[in-house]
Amino acid sequence: MTPMRCPYSDTELNAFVDDELPAEQRTGILDYLNGHPETARKVESWRSQRQFLRGQFDAVARETVPVSLSLRANSAIKYTATRLASPVPHAPVSLSIVPPEPMPLPPHLSHSSHGADRRRSWSIFVYGMACAFAMAATMSLILQHGALLQSAGMAAEGLRQPTTNPVLAAPVAVAQAMAPSEGRARLASTVALAPDHENALAALRNYRSFSALPLEFISPNADVLEKSLSQRLGYRLKLPRFADSHWKMVGARLTAENSGPAAFVLYADHGGALRGATIQRGWSANGADSLAVAGLHAVVFGYHDQTVAMVSVAAFDEIGLSDTVSDTAR
């Protein structure tokens, strides 16, 4: 005797599993499944695939989105640059850092039984401590050299040379006393003057990505760099060349800005000093929607075994960027 053939196709049964059938057809299939355990098992195995797949991949959806994919990360950077450039308040500044949320305990003190939670708590704690250190160090600098912050020329210096930048002097000294990677991370965190805990973490993550991968493209040929960047960005980017100055383009990488993806370009002079700028379409010095230089933030990272601190806006002020922007925008 041959087994009775199922009156429902696999397509219908799949639609049943996915709730894509009208109610009456659904009821009919339910009745059929009650009397046919073999088909019911098959349907149940399909249904269990959802839990199976989600069980394996849901962890990805719970991960922190990498900074390269975060459109929000740079809002903190922009705010930071504004804060650095703005006059220092004369009101007393408290050095205690109070995060908006209770600081999670390190894993060995946590009562959480879930390993993932504990690891997440620990990473938040580490970030929190780094940010607290950053803010405390910068606040102490502000107290010591507050008036100097208002000066326009926040020239950045390589760590191997004595720096004259009051903003970076103390963190640089701290960084020099530490191992290179740890030093860079701490140094990066000192410029994360974010308005709150969340933004501080976002800023720190962004700087850390710069530390991990300062440059994506390295070429002495500016045309090649410009072409590579334009291809990645999806629009034609014109980079300032500084033909009459001693600044030469060294390399570049993509970065995320508030208004969209942008290019971070590194220049070097004959003496090996480095300057960087964030350049993107849409922000123009002369109002035209062509080339714009968005010097948003200080960037600190290692380059060729040097820990380098750079401040984009002020650096380009020094070499007359505003004139150059008008030229290249045409």
Partner: peptide, 29 residues
């Protein structure tokens, strides 16, 4: 809106690119 969807989009991309998982999910990202 894009940021809201990004975590699930990453999950989908990770699952879609299982053949190239040796790169730690970078191709998905």
């Amino acid at each position: 809106e894009i940021e809201t969807h990004t975590p699930k989009l990453r999950r989908f991309a990770r699952a879609l690119t299982v053949g190239s998982k040796a790169d730690g999910g970078r191709s998905g990202d």
